[in-house]
Amino acid sequence: MSLAVLLATMRVQMKQSFARPMFRFCLIANPILNTVLLYEMYRGSGEESFMAYVVLGAGLMGLWSCICFSSAGDINRERYSGTLALIFVAPASFPTIILGKIIGNTLLSLLTLGISLVTAAVLFRTPLMLESPLYFLFALLAAVAAFVVISSVVACLLTLSRKTELYMNCIEIPIILLCGFVFPVSVLPAAVRAVSYALSPTYAVELLRMSVWGVEEPAAFWQKLGILLGLTALYAVLSALLYRRIDRRVRVAATLEVA
């Protein structure tokens, strides 16, 4: 893996993403609107920590939307602009290029958490407490890794198909619901919860929420973090295997370009 390629791709991706009005909407307007919506939903619910569900929920929804419509949507944009074929046959490894794009987008998309926080603080003047900032930092880093890896799997699968837009719309809301971005997963039926706990973002969200409330049992935090990192590693292996396969598959199926 070339670090120069990774960094150059991250830089180019951030420039390009920010230049797109739709990305700016997802990055800036979306978390503001979601914060207002969630605040109104949670206002009379008895939940005292607006930080855990309103700020974090809106921020994570915005983050996931940015990832879906950029990391995934970029495959289609590259395909329609004729650059997917160019980056695919460049001597730099294709997975490194895709990883650079995803890291660039994810780092930029983290802004949604800050925007959500500022919105809640300015509009509603509610107390926003973060009880365990150090744990939050660990949880955030692990969450970023989890989102990067899951995006990489999605982007890889989307390289194989031309129905990218359909799929990226299909995965946005289900992940928000299944992974408990805006409500605890415990309210979901048991069968659905089984799916939730197979998805790494569920653990990331729970870890972030634990650190907002305050980590009273560090062992429980570290155990959950261990599961998250384990799942992330598993997804990373899956992603690496998939990328090895698509290199041949896309050239047989001719999906690099628009027909």
Binding site: A4, A8, V12, Q16, A19, S81, G82, T83, L86
Partner: peptide, 19 residues
């Protein structure tokens, strides 16, 4: 087709020279 329209010519070439 085949260029990044939201980048300058120089940035396009810089990027591809990295690739």
């Amino acid at each position: 087709m085949g260029v990044y329209r939201r980048l300058s010519a120089r940035d396009n070439l810089r990027y591809f020279s990295n690739l």
